[in-house]
Amino acid sequence: MASSNHLPGTTVPPFMIFIGYDPREDAAYNVCRHSLLKHSSIPLHISPIKQSDLRSSNLYSRDRDTTESTEFSFTRFLTPYLAGFQDGPCLSTAISYTPPMWPISSVSSTIASPSCVYTMKTTKMDGAVQTVYPRKNWSSMVLYNCGHPKNRILTPELVSSETGAFLHRFRWLDDEEIGSVPFVWNFLVGHNRVVENDPTTFPQAIHYTLGGPWFERYKDCEFADLWLKELEECEKEKKGDN
């Protein structure tokens, strides 16, 4: 279900955010949604990318591959389609916690993604196989220019049939069409590091790529306290709505 916040007196169209959803990580989605709505200074329209919904709507027919660690490994590339290929930016993310909101502005490049990260551990999440490939983790947070003609190639038919290499390495684009986002906006816990006395390295959006505090084995990982605090707020808010 999509959710949004509406700021009084504003006429700005909500900024669309699509969050990868996996039933095993329902808490991760809810905390991400909660933190986005809590910290945003602009109207948002947030939608989970649920594979079951896409399949029932005949928008996704890909067979599950052994290399897919989550249900949104490939469905995330439907973001421009789900946004209606509208002109302007929208965000596709697997980020788990966002302290402040992104400083969103117009997107001149076709897409903008974080710097390339290679992750060398063999497992992630709850024991899922970790696959290493060029441009690893670029697709975990993408700011799309949804109306760009080249992104119109990302139809349900293509996303259901193209190779993982084609999609995760953004092979439908030329290199110069891919912009960059500072790593702090997709801070990979366990890989990126905060440099002492350098505030520019402190995470602005946290991505527990190997596994987050919602898994028992990662409950004491770096920045777990921030996520658990947000979870507590999220659960209190949910009880208050009932």
Rank of each mutant, 00 (worst) to 15 (best):
M120Q: 12
V129Y: 05
V129Q: 07
H148M: 03
K121G: 08
K124D: 09
C146R: 05
Y144V: 04
P149C: 06
M141G: 01
G127T: 00
K124L: 15
H148S: 03
R135H: 08
P149A: 06
Y133Q: 11
W138L: 14
P134L: 10
T119V: 02
W138Y: 13
M125G: 02
M141V: 09
N137T: 13
R135W: 08
M125A: 06
G147I: 01
V129S: 04
V142F: 08
M141C: 07
K124T: 11
M141N: 07
R135Q: 11
P134A: 08
N145M: 02
Y133P: 09
H148L: 03
M125V: 01
K136C: 14
Q130T: 01
T119I: 05
W138V: 09
T123Q: 12
Y144G: 01
K124S: 14
S139I: 06
Y144H: 10
V132S: 05
W138D: 15
K124A: 14
P149S: 09
K136V: 02
G147Y: 01
T122P: 03
V142E: 02
Q130W: 05
S140V: 06
A128Y: 08
N137D: 11
V142H: 04
K121H: 13
P134S: 12
D126V: 00
M141F: 13
M120E: 15
G147L: 00
Y144L: 03
T119W: 08
K136F: 08
T122F: 10
A128R: 07
G127F: 01
Y133M: 15
V132F: 05
R135L: 12
R135D: 10
